[in-house]
Design a protein around this nucleic acid. Sequence first.
DNA 1: ACGCGCTTGTGAACGCGCGCACAAAGTCAG
DNA 2: CTGACTTTGTGCGCGCGTTCACAAGCGCGT
Lengths: 221, 221
Amino acid sequence: MTTSELAEPRTPRRREVIPEATVARLPLYLRALHTLADEGTQTVSSEALAEASGVNSAKLRKDLSQLGSYGTRGVGYDVTHLISQISRELGLSRRCSVVLVGVGNLGRALAGYGGFASRGLAIDALLDADRAMTGEQIAGMTVRHIDDLAQVVVPGSIGVIATPASAAQEVCDLLVGAGVTSILNFAPTVLNVPADVDLRKVDLSIELQILSFHEHRKSLA
Amino acid sequence: MTTSELAEPRTPRRREVIPEATVARLPLYLRALHTLADEGTQTVSSEALAEASGVNSAKLRKDLSQLGSYGTRGVGYDVTHLISQISRELGLSRRCSVVLVGVGNLGRALAGYGGFASRGLAIDALLDADRAMTGEQIAGMTVRHIDDLAQVVVPGSIGVIATPASAAQEVCDLLVGAGVTSILNFAPTVLNVPADVDLRKVDLSIELQILSFHEHRKSLA
DNA sequence: ACGCGCTTGTGAACGCGCGCACAAAGTCAG
DNA sequence: CTGACTTTGTGCGCGCGTTCACAAGCGCGT
C-alpha cells in the first residue's frame, strides 16, 4: 500500500458520482437561490434555503456537500458562489442547445415558457412534420420542417418531443439518428432508445391521476 | 390479546395502504392497457404488460398484487377487468372535477390536452384573474373570472395552477379557501398549504436541467 | 486572545423500494 | 385423469435515500 492505496490520490474532491436524487433537487435549490439573489440576500443558512426550496435542511446540506464544501460554518452559504457552483455542475454555464419537435398546443406553450431561458436553457429551434406550420413565427423563432433536423442539431443538443403519441417514436428515432443523446418526452407513450441515450418523460395526466387517487382515498375514509 | 390479536381480522384484502411508488405507476399500466384494449387484446401476461409500460415484470406483478389478485396463473390478466380495477382504485370511475386556473400559454395547452379526457379527467372549468380573458372560448369552455371560483368548485374537485409564479400562492390560497384539497402546481415556485391538502408539482424546466446535467457529464467523460 | 454560540458536514440507523428466484396454481394436450 | 408447461404471487436480500443527532469549525463580542 505504499504507492497506490487509492485509485486517484490526486483528486480529493468528493464529486466522483452525484446521486440521482440529489441531481433532481439541484434545480430546486438553484431556483430558490435566484430568488434570494434578486432580493439582495448575500448569505443564506441551510435552514433558510431548505425552507425556500421545500425540503429538509439535513438533506440540503448533504446534497450540497456532494459537490464539495462551499459553506462557512457559523455563517451559511454565499448565495452568488453557490449559484455558480450549482450552475456549473448542471452544465448551465455555457448555453445548452435545445431542439423542440412538435408545435401543437403543448409545443407552443413550451416555446413561450420563460422558465427555460432564465436558467440558461433557451430553446434554439422549433421543428414540425406539418409543412403548414413551417415558416410560422412562434416566440421569436421560425418553425422549420423536421427534415432540417440535422442542420439544427449540434453535439450536446437536448431534444424535446411534444408531438402526439403516434408520432413520438418516429421523431425519437430521428433525433437519435441525428446524434441527440438526451431526450425529454412529453408524449404519453413509452419510447425505445439505445442504452447510451438519456430519456426522461413528463406525462401531464399522470400527476392528475395520482391526485385523483388520493382524493378518492379521502372520500372513502 | 385473546380477542384482538389483529386490528381488522375481517378484511383479508391487502389494499390497506398502497405504496406511493405503486400509485405513481398505476397510470402507466392503465395507459398501456387502454392501448391493448384498443387493439382488441383480451388477455395479457405480466411480461408483455411490463414491456408495454416500460417497467420490470416482477415490479408490475407486485404492484398489481397490491390491489388484490386479479390475474390467472398460466394465462395472465384480463385486460378489461384490469382496466376497471385500476380505474376504480385511482378514483376515475366516477368523473372527477378539475378546475384550471390561469389560461396563459401553458393553461391553454392543458385545456386542449386530450390525454386528460381519455382518462376520465376532463377539465370542467377555466378561470383567470385577467378580465380581458373572461368570456373567451378555449377548448369548448368559457373562461370565467377567478371570483367565480366558489361557484365551480365542488367537493372533491382538483385544482390546477397554471399561473405565473408571482400569482401562484395567492391562487393556491383561494383554492384552499374554496375547499379544494388536491392541487397540481405548474408554477415554478414553492407553495405553502395546510397539512390536509395534497400538493403535487410539475416543473417543466427541472427535467431539462436534469438532462443538462447528464449531458454535461458525458461531455467531460 | 479567548471562549461562546451559531451553522455546517457527516456517521449511523432506519425504512422503502427494487429485483431475483422460486414455489404455488392454473391451463391444456393427450 | 395425469403430467408438463406457463404464468402468477411473493419471500428475501440488497442498495439507495432520508433523517437524526452530534462533533468539528468559524466568526464575533468582550
